[in-house]
Design a binder for these strands. Structure first.
Lengths: 160, 160
DNA sequence: GTTTTTGCAAATGATTTGCATGGAT
DNA sequence: ATCCATGCAAATCATTTGCAAAAAC
């Protein structure tokens, strides 16, 4: 019912040279209201207001908002991707392996995870940490600027 | 060429009441030899020895080995799942966003990620931390033993 | 009015499943 | 001889893509 949004989505869309559509605003409102929701779930709720909205459009919108940095995407194992609007900081997540519930964990210092997650009520059994960045070769290739031949390396390992 | 394995896969399979097949041994040998490989890549290499081996079988084998805890599964964003045989410890991973190369990061103390990843050569830009465990409700439900009605909760959030 | 977005349908990629045969114990 | 594991085909699930119609600027 309430379309109370904390952030000025309309303004942010303008800033990013995106058109302000009711679909986008609806998706953003739902993601803000229900953090850690899947595209499917977001579509379902948004459709209460916009019955014509399709899941595919939600995917397109979310992908775009994600590349703009307006939403953050979490990909827990054995679950579709989940989305949230809290993007500025580097907080982490605790996922319940029983029910799938996701909790924010406020313990980050910059981009580095803290030693002990202090703000969760879950009994943590596993910590999956994935650092992302550039390896030496790719950093070198990047500073060499220009898109030269894609750097490749031996052995059967996959991309990205 | 070399089928030199470090671990006694045959023994471990026996321990877990699994039949020792050349397919399983081949998959395990490949995962051990090329850590952080995808199911597809593993199948490709294993097929050099066992041309009849299908990707689907590799998936089945890996899924089983994973539930047994004999292999660990990593799921980087925008990549199929990767597998490795290093399972005993709680090391982490650094993924290059340029080429997809995966590096082990030895910095864990128990199940808790360390403050600074010391053993990587990558320039880390993002730390995705996902703690997994049981939330209060699920822990309570678990101690109440028996599989009662599946605990559910409101709002559109997904499972597992 | 022009260009971006949406809606719809179909395609894709990763992974799972059902079932009959082959193989390990 | 029994029962599990593999091979094959088809199904499923999450997500992406192509294109024409609709909406925003």
């Amino acid at each position: 019912m309430s379309t109370t949004t904390t952030r000025d989505w309309e303004g942010e869309l303008h800033t990013h040279a995106r058109r302000v559509t009711k679909q986008r605003l609806a998706v953003l409102a739902v993601v803000e209201r229900f953090p850690h929701s899947s595209a499917e779930a977001i579509a379902k709720v948004a459709r209460e207001t916009l019955p014509a909205l399709t899941v595919q459009s939600v995917y397109v919108v979310l992908a775009d908002l994600h590349t703009l940095g307006m939403v953050r995407r979490i990909e827990p194992p054995d679950s579709p991707a989940l989305y949230e609007t809290r993007t500025g900081d580097n907080h982490h997540h605790a996922v319940c392996t029983g029910c799938g519930r996701v909790e924010d964990v406020d313990c980050a210092v910059g981009h580095t995870p803290c030693l002990t997650p202090s703000s969760t009520t879950m009994t943590i059994r596993i910590a999956d940490v994935l650092y992302r960045g550039l390896c030496r070769d790719c950093e070198a290739a990047q500073s060499t600027e220009a898109t030269l031949a894609t750097p490749n390396f031996p052995s059967p390992t996959n991309q990205r």
